[in-house]
Design a protein around this nucleic acid. Sequence first.
DNA 1: TTCCCGGTCC
DNA 2: GGACCCGGAA
Length: 216
Amino acid sequence: MKNSLMFMYHRLVRHFGPLHWWPADSPFEVVIGAFLTQNTAWRNVEQAIAALKQHIPLTPAALCALPKETLEALIRPAGFFRQKAQRLQLFAQVLQERYQGDLDAMLSGPLPRVRQELLAFKGIGPETADSILLYAAQRPSFVVDAYTRRLLQRYGLLRGIENHEEIRALFMDHLPHQAALFNEFHALVVEQCKTFCRKRPLCESCPLQSRCAARL
DNA sequence: TTCCCGGTCC
DNA sequence: GGACCCGGAA
């Protein structure tokens, strides 16, 4: 398993080169992006964040102070804007009250404990929690999303019945816990799935073709 | 104009 | 399983 994952990683690095994730100016902007990108194409999230940035500095305090209706209107392009606005503000509020707005303080401490705390928020599921941990705090928590499942399944590393935590464990149990590695690996998986391993796959020029089960 | 895509909560 | 929602492709 370790060898399969590392082979895949190196092939993807060779094809896509180093990616620069996560595109954001601050850790708190990563958090906002992590909420907004749920079930949403990144291009729409960019619009929403750009609009938001024009109105307020992207800080927990400013987000709390913004009227809910205004926030909803600004992040509208990201979809699910009512629930995302409400959940983002709730998160910002708790961050203010418990940690005086200090994201680093919230995200430091033993990884499993911090992860559990994140998962307790309404609007933070496993993918969002791990995105925040990895990309806002450089903590080695592997991010699994729909792309990851599809790629691994087609490649032949899953039977198809594994749940989210089991897929995450595949990476966590077989790779060194290095934030830089996890960061790049997830970014490469996303790029790979947008380019080749799409819903309707383009196997012809895929960098993983030679060892992919779907292609054999 | 309909259809598709993507996380989380209930 | 259904609800939440957009932009863009078909």
